[in-house]
């Protein structure tokens, strides 16, 4: 019996807790991609860099606060800095819309042109981020490191396996729940939210019923920027901030959005968790887990790892390919082809 408990704790510690945290980060990021897709109808390649920019602004404010001795005690200071970072990102994103995308909207350009423009924006933001903060690794988390450490858990439960939950992981999941709840409340209950959904469903009909497209687009961008900043900061807190990582995370983000169904917010969340859990469980070494469950002496010799962690991006890609082959509209049937 104890062996089974140990196995469950081991699984929770290395698979479920990290998966939940990573899934929340992906879900928040994919929500931004899906919002832009639903309202503006293009795949925003600059989204990863928007996340990087938001995180960078948050880090700068965090440093400023830390220098003045302002903090949240056990919680990371970055949480106070987050609104400021988000505000700065909103300004940047609205400016890019005004200077870049607005023109193509007036021209009614095909989505591909928007996509290329977003690549230009990506370059630009990437340059800005590296210019201001440099390409190096930045650690900006402070406060209490763990909610519960492995040692404490072992003492509490008397089990051989420990369960450690990092503060950042706890914050990530709680923040994600709050943000997603707020977003859905907004989309389903408020007038602006309803007009956004109407615009996403049928642009012509929405315009005919007097919905102001500029306002819908603006609100969509504001949400995207805020979501990107939160997702980026949580990711940065959980791991560390490296500008190039935000370029690589683009693939899992797109995979999450497409798996769930592009343009469908609920799908983006589901997709985020699908991708995160597959990534974690495919790269998890099951040896110790199996050793607890099988009789003595049967334990496998190898790591029993399906894929080395170097190929975690391959997991999101394979899932993406499977979805494209089997159900291109995604699990929750987003926009049709």
């Amino acid at each position: 019996m104890e062996d089974i408990l140990n196995a469950i704790v081991l699984m929770t510690n290395f698979l479920i807790v990290p998966g939940l945290a990573y899934g929340s980060q992906l879900a928040l990021g994919a929500l931004g991609i899906t919002l832009v897709y639903g309202i503006l109808r293009f795949s925003n390649f600059a989204h990863g860099e928007t996340m990087a920019f938001g995180t960078m602004m948050t880090i700068l404010v965090t440093w400023f606060l830390q220098a003045h001795g302002i903090g949240l005690g056990p919680l990371p200071t970055a949480l106070i800095a987050l609104p400021v970072g988000a505000a700065a990102t909103v300004v940047l994103v609205l400016l890019t819309d005004k200077w870049v995308y607005c023109f193509y909207r007036r021209q009614k350009s095909p989505p591909v042109i928007f996509l290329i423009a977003s690549i230009g924006v990506m370059f630009l933001m990437n340059g800005i981020v590296r210019f201001i903060i440099g390409p190096k690794d930045q650690v900006f988390t402070d406060g209490e490191r763990f909610i519960i450490t492995a040692g404490e858990f072992k003492q509490l439960s008397g089990l051989r396996e420990g369960l450690a939950i990092k503060t950042t992981q706890g914050i990530t999941v709680i923040t994600a729940i709050v943000v997603v709840a707020a977003l859905f409340w907004f989309l389903n209950k408020t007038r602006t939210g309803k007009s956004m959904r109407a615009y996403s469903d049928n642009e012509d009909l929405a315009l005919l019923s007097g919905i102001n497209p500029d306002r819908v687009v603006m609100v969509a961008w504001i949400f995207t920027a805020v979501l990107a900043t939160i997702a980026g900061t949580l990711y940065g807190l959980d791991k560390s901030f490296k500008p190039f990582v935000y370029l690589q995370i683009l693939l899992p983000l797109f995979a999450s959005a497409i798996v769930g169904g592009l343009g469908n917010p609920l799908g983006a969340i589901a997709g985020g968790f699908v991708i995160a859990f597959s990534e974690v469980s495919f790269t998890f070494a099951y040896r110790k887990f199996l050793a607890y469950l099988v009789p003595d002496g049967w334990a496998p010799d190898g790591l029993v790892q399906l894929l080395s962690t170097d190929y975690k991006f391959a997991v999101s890609f394979v899932i993406l390919v499977l979805v494209l082959l089997v159900k291109p509209t995604g699990i929750f049937s987003g926009k049709s082809l």
Partner: peptide, 16 residues
């Protein structure tokens, strides 16, 4: 499929 999918799929295969 939709034109964006080629973009995303090629992004993925190149990373891999």
């Amino acid at each position: 499929l939709r034109s964006d999918y080629l973009a995303i799929a090629t992004l993925g295969i190149s990373e891999i």
